[in-house]
């Protein structure tokens, strides 16, 4: 449903008191229904700057609200609540509370980039969606998504050893997401592997899982990667929370 067709009065903005007496008049129950104000009383100018400072969000200020992104959007076709144009506007005007209401939808962007090619002003809405999800996560509005955890497990291993080892990846991912390794599908997969793979290959796999071999001469690459990741993280923290991050740095 396009935004302008949504009801202006939301259930969560209504309050009623079971027992309420105002100036001696009993207004208990629905007689005391109040509608919370929808008035925007200020612009939060920091919000756009924060998201613009994250990778992908650089060109958000170009948006003139034509709606080409939303019209071309793959996800919008399935879920009309997914409205990049609207979110870009909320970010630009700093209407944070409204954006956070949609925090569980924003990350659903599938990065098909149809919006990127539809946008007449090169806003790169796909990038803005990425930056916005990232911002929501950095600000603590959304928990780390399972896919982000999976990425992290893989990245950590590559930084550490230069390789990804499947068994280790699976174990760490299940552990970090609080899932048991004794899943039916895992048990079935291991049974199949044991019964079908040649013994030599199985031995090699088992050994790899145990000793986690490194790419030779990796230590230099590891140092460089770690330094780069640290720089990026500091930069992003600075963008989202300049005061705190600045103090930490000194």
């Amino acid at each position: 449903m396009p935004i302008h067709e949504q009801s202006l009065i939301r259930p969560e903005n209504l309050t009623t008191h079971e027992e309420k007496i105002i100036d001696g008049i009993d207004v208990s129950g629905h007689w005391s229904t109040f509608i919370e104000s929808r008035v925007v009383t200020d612009y939060n100018e920091q919000m756009e700057d924060e998201i613009a400072a994250l990778p992908g969000g650089e060109f958000i200020h170009r948006c003139w609200q034509c709606g080409s992104c939303t019209n071309s959007c793959t996800v919008n076709a399935v879920n009309p609540e997914f409205n990049p144009r609207f979110w870009i506007y909320l970010i630009r005007m700093g209407i944070e509370s409204e954006l956070i209401r949609d925090k569980d939808i924003i990350w659903q962007c599938v990065s098909c980039n149809k919006c990127t090619y539809a946008c007449p002003r090169d806003v790169y809405p796909e990038g803005v969606m990425k930056a916005t999800s990232h911002w929501l996560e950095l600000k603590g509005h959304t928990p780390q998504s399972p896919s982000a955890i999976f990425d992290e497990v893989c990245t950590d291993q590559i930084v550490d050893t230069g390789k990804i080892e499947d068994g280790r990846t699976l174990r760490r991912f299940m552990q970090k997401t609080g899932q048991s390794l004794l899943q039916d599908w895992i048990v079935a997969m291991i049974k199949q592997l044991v019964s079908h793979l040649p013994v030599s290959l199985l031995a090699k796999m088992g050994l790899s899982t145990l000793i986690a071999p490194r790419t030779s001469g990796w230590s230099g690459a590891r140092r460089a990667l770690k330094r780069y990741i640290e720089e990026q993280q500091t930069e992003q923290q600075m963008a989202v929370n300049p005061v705190v991050a600045g103090e930490e740095k000194h």
């Binding site: 935004i3 302008h4 202006l8 929808r38 008035v39 925007v40 009383t41 506007y89 005007m93 209407i95």
Partner: peptide, 12 residues
Amino acid sequence: EDTLVKRPITIP
């Protein structure tokens, strides 16, 4: 009224 978000505004 900010017509794009259909909300009243009172901005300083």
